[in-house]
Design a protein around this nucleic acid. Structure first.
Lengths: 111, 111
DNA sequence: TTGTCATATTGTAATATTGCAATATTACAA
DNA sequence: TTGTAATATTGCAATATTACAATATGACAA
């Protein structure tokens, strides 16, 4: 006990949950929103934009990278981050399917 | 240190992160998917469908309820759960906005 | 080289999460 | 009433997460 029992769930649901989980921290969501606004962004900008220490920001960037939401390119002394196209596409499809499925039974929900 | 510093973020981003966070566990995502498939669902069904103990399922249902993703209606000895319309709508808007903003700068990303 | 800037890593303390056994609680049926 | 079924709550152990100081690494500039 204590840790999530990933082994009892399908790989797909574990992966989807990991994506939502990565977006489920305000600092990481702030990073994603910054990348949505500015398209690309160097790590140091985030360190000055978000009032958390540099190691903490670095750690959050790692989480986002690990699930594939962002990618980083080394540019001299800096790392330039941007959103990962295929991951965004996957989120689009997942939420899209979810909403279609939801709409299908909106006529007679009795809760 | 140790706990998330919610106070340094806007309420909105904290709330959105809380929603993603609630979806960020395979058991909770499985519950949401079950509700998408069957529209409504009694708690006991989930307890037999997902191989986790009854208290654990109950706790996950509480997390989903707290952020407003699901709602439960008492029906005799059971509780009938369904997805919360306004929350789903909020997720639709958020992801929609996100994707629109993302599409706007897809022509010249150089990462 | 040496210094400095941007980033990553490591170690660690504080806190949160996950999961379950045991135990309520509540509603109904016999 | 008594029993039982469905759910919630409590307490606790195991584990994960968050944040940061200290330190390492790598790139560039003087």
């Amino acid at each position: 006990m204590g840790a999530t029992k990933h082994e009892i769930f399908h790989d797909q649901i574990n992966e989807e949950a990991a994506i939502f989980n990565a977006l489920g921290h305000p600092a990481r969501l702030a990073i994603v929103k910054t990348l949505l606004t500015y398209k690309t962004c160097v790590g140091n900008y985030l360190t000055h934009e978000i009032p958390l220490s540099q190691p903490t920001i670095s750690q959050h960037l790692k989480v986002l990278k690990n699930v594939g939401i962002i990618q980083g390119t080394i540019e001299g002394k800096s790392v330039c981050y941007c959103l990962n196209h295929s991951l965004i596409e996957r989120l689009r499809v997942f939420v899209g399917d979810m909403l279609i499925q939801y709409d299908l039974h909106q006529t007679n929900c009795n809760c």
